[in-house]
Design a protein around this nucleic acid. Structure first.
Lengths: 138, 138
DNA sequence: ATTAATGCAAATGCTTTGCATCTCT
DNA sequence: AGAGATGCAAAGCATTTGCATTAAT
């Protein structure tokens, strides 16, 4: 909830007009924009911003841990600024729409109705991410 | 475990040399090939098979529910023939290597050491897939 | 002054498509 | 025969890259 821009300033992140606009566009709850959507919204406020800068900035924010990258399988990645509160994702396999959800109880069992947002849930999938022994060695 | 080819025959799947080779290449446990790897192995056995056919066939197998598509974020998708036994995935963020895992207890907590295969696990991520109300209406 | 961010345009990687030809059933 | 699968090559989309220019500290 606390402002993304403020958090970034607090971390001594080098500020430019472009970076500010990207952070502003991304700020908020339930925001899951694609890079293209970020570019479109950013261009409204700052017409000279380039696609490369949007990608650069998004990549930065992800490595800073301030934004989460959500892969939607086939479709363009979405960027989620809600990195400070743990949550999971509910993704529409038709259109790629995303909702944040907070499952209760055993997460592999059905998602509570109150957390389903009208979706017909057909699959739950869990992924552990890390480094394999070979890559850790390098 | 039971043979992928047999299951496909049993379902009345139209058989061709190309489809047979793809199914053979994919058969087995702990198999997580990319489309390109499938093409390479298939080409060894049937030099005239085309990339388009490999993609077509993989797509078919996925919609039949006989093969799982595993998105590895940025990298090429991998195809997992182990669709008949529930399991989760452990993915290396450096090289994209995949292992099947069977977490016990609360899946969002740490993966048991015996299931870690030497990986350093840095994140667990859960995704619910389904159809949103708007798409369901269409 | 230094160091890093920006913009452009071209390149990349994976996957899909259109369409004519060939093959299973 | 007829529905459907195949191969080819080109197109598509999301994302990345190289490099000269520009701006922040």
């Amino acid at each position: 909830m606390s402002d993304l821009l403020e958090r970034l300033r607090g971390r001594g992140w080098r500020m430019t007009a472009q970076r500010r606009v990207v952070a502003e566009v991304l700020n908020g709850d339930h925001v899951h924009l694609t890079a293209d959507e970020v570019l479109a919204r950013a261009t409204d406020r700052l017409p000279e911003i380039s696609r490369a800068t949007v990608y650069n900035t998004l990549g930065e924010l992800v490595s800073l841990g301030e934004v989460l990258e959500v892969a939607t399988d086939g479709r363009a990645k979405r960027y989620d600024p809600n990195a400070h509160r743990p949550h999971q994702h509910l993704i529409c396999s038709d259109c790629g729409a995303i909702r944040d959800v907070h499952p209760t109880g055993d997460p592999l069992s059905a998602l509570p109705a109150a957390e389903r947002f009208g979706f017909t849930v057909s699959a739950v999938e869990m992924t552990y991410r890390g480094r394999c022994p070979e890559c850790a060695r390098a």
